[in-house]
Design a protein around this nucleic acid. Structure first.
Lengths: 155, 155
DNA sequence: GTCAAATACGTGTATATACACTCATTATGT
DNA sequence: ACATAATGAGTGTATATACACGTATTTGAC
C-alpha cells in the first residue's frame, strides 16, 4: 500500500519505475499546476491563464504568433487558451495594419484581475522559493532551459 | 521579432516576464513531452502512454487507485488515459475479489509494444542525459521532488 | 500587374488533465 | 442483521495541448 509510504519513498519508487525525464517533469508539473490553480482560484484564474495574462501585460500588444513563440506553445493551443479569457472579457483581440494578424491586449478588466491575482501568486511562489532557496531555484531554471534547448533541436 | 533571437535570450525573456515556478516548468514540460512524443511515434505511443505502460509493467496487476497515486495523477484522469490503451488492446481491466476495484495489467500486445518502444525511449533519454550529465540530471530530479513535496502539503 | 508562395490564423479531432457528481460495493457500529 | 459510512470507480463538463487541414491576406518573382 503506497498511501502509507512517506512521499520521498513514493517519489523514489516512481522515479526508479519510470526513469524518464519526460515522465518526471510531467509528474511534478501536474502537482505544481494544481498548487498554483488552488492559490489563484480566489482571483478566478487558472495557472495557465495567469501566465498568459502576465505575459500579455509584459509584451504589450503583440500578434498571436509572437506570443505563442515566447510561450513555446503551439499557435492553435494559444487560440483555445484565449477562449475563457475572451469570454470573461480579460483580453481583447484586435486587427492590425496586417489584417491577417490578431494583436492581443489586456482589457482594463484583465489588468485589474491581474492585480488582484498578483499577491496570491506571490504568496504561492514565495512558499516554494523560500523553501528551496533562490540558488536552488535558479539552478532548476538553468537546468530546465538547458533541457529545453536540447529537445528543441529535435523538434 | 523573437524568432531571430537565440533561444537562450528568448528563454531569459520569458523567465523575466513570467518568473513563475509553474509557468517555467509547464513551458519546459510542453517541449519535453513533444520531444518524447516524436521519439516514440514509431511505436505508436505518446509520452503519457509510454509512461503508463512502463509503470504497469513494473507494478504488475494493481488497482487503479494505487496506480493513480504513484502517478500523482487524478484518479479520473487515469480512467481517461486508459481509453486509447484499452482500444489498442495494450492494457486489460479485470475485476478482483473486491468487485469495486479494477486491477490493471498489460496484455501480451502491451508487453511487445513496450519492448518495441524501449530503444526509442532509450535513445531520446540518452540524448538528454548525455548532454547535461548524470549529476545535473540527478540534481534536477531532487529539485523536482523537493518542490513536489512542498506543493503537496497545500493540496 | 498577376499569380504562386509565404504568412497569420481558425477548426476538427484526439489526448491529457482535474473537479463535481453519481453509482456500486464493502466495511462497520449497534 | 441492518442501516450508514467509507471506498473504488465512472461520467459530465471545462480547460490544456498539439497535429492535420483549411481560409484569408500579404509578399515577391516575373
Amino acid at each position: 500500500m503506497f498511501k502509507n509510504m512517506p512521499k520521498e519513498t513514493l517519489y523514489e519508487f516512481a522515479r526508479q519505475a519510470v526513469p524518464c525525464v519526460g515522465f518526471n517533469t510531467r509528474r511534478a508539473t501536474r502537482l505544481i499546476t494544481q498548487y498554483y490553480d488552488k492559490a489563484l482560484a480566489p482571483a478566478g484564474l487558472r495557472s495557465t491563464q495567469y501566465s498568459l495574462l502576465t505575459l500579455l501585460a509584459m509584451m504589450g500588444e503583440a500578434p498571436m504568433q509572437e506570443v505563442a513563440y515566447v510561450l513555446a506553445m503551439d499557435r492553435t493551443t494559444l487560440t483555445r487558451n484565449l477562449n475563457p479569457l475572451l469570454r470573461q472579457g480579460l483580453v481583447k483581440v484586435t486587427v492590425g495594419s496586417d489584417r491577417r494578424a490578431r494583436p492581443l491586449a489586456l482589457t482594463p478588466k484583465g489588468q485589474s484581475t491581474l492585480e488582484k491575482a498578483l499577491p496570491l501568486w506571490q504568496a504561492a511562489q514565495s512558499r516554494i522559493v523560500d523553501a528551496i532557496g533562490a540558488e536552488q531555484w535558479e539552478a532548476m531554471m538553468r537546468g530546465l532551459h538547458q533541457i529545453s534547448m536540447i529537445v528543441e533541436e529535435d523538434l
